[in-house]
């Protein structure tokens, strides 16, 4: 398992895609999309990502919640997957109910789901977002989301063989291991 983290416009997606391609060889490659589309901007974003991926041979699975169920939509045999991204998945899970789910519950659900997904794959590459460095104070709901994301990233980093931060398109290895 590999965790790739970066900020908005950092080039993390393009890097993650090439990373998956390079380690997949002839295995089937899945792209697990978590973004829910509400408006034109979301539509454009999704379209941009689709263009980026085109020609790289990914099969797309839409899985905005219940991440472990993504495997039910995959074929048998050796396969790799790119999960993009943890920040959308967490927001979807956290705010889909009327009362926001607590950070403890959400952390367990997301990390548990990812671990179970990873067990079914030759390799899972996860994209997550660095949302932690704007130094702002937000309302309690947003702070709970930030804390949940912090916990989830730490847990995933602990479980991952390799962790890479992408900065201005440049990969910086923060945890190196055998992939």
């Amino acid at each position: 398992m590999t965790l790739i983290i970066g900020g908005s416009g950092s080039g993390k997606s393009a890097y993650a895609e090439d990373y998956v391609v390079s380690l997949s060889e002839k295995k089937k490659k899945y792209y697990i999309a978590t973004m829910q589309i509400y408006d034109d901007e979301g539509e454009k974003k999704m379209e941009r990502h689709r263009m980026l991926r085109s020609g790289k041979g990914f099969f797309t699975i839409e899985q905005p919640v219940d991440i472990k169920k993504a495997v039910e939509k995959m074929e048998n045999g050796e396969k790799t997957a790119l999960l993009e991204c943890v920040s959308n998945l967490t927001a979807n899970e956290m705010f889909s109910e009327e009362v926001p789910v607590t950070e403890e519950v959400i952390t367990e659900k997301i990390v548990g789901g990812i671990v179970s997904l990873n067990e079914q794959l030759s390799h899972l590459v996860i994209v997550s977002n660095n949302i932690f460095e704007d130094g702002k104070e937000y309302d309690e709901t947003t702070m709970a989301y930030i804390r949940a994301m912090g916990r989830i990233n730490q847990k995933l980093a602990e479980l991952a063989d390799e962790v890479v931060e992408v900065v201005v398109g440049i990969p910086l290895v923060v945890k190196s291991g055998r992939v």
């Binding site: 970066g6 900020g7 901007e41 949302i131 704007d134 702002k136």
Partner: peptide
Amino acid sequence: EVGNGIVPTET
């Protein structure tokens, strides 16, 4: 580097 925060609500 300006991208490492919560995605703003303002377009």
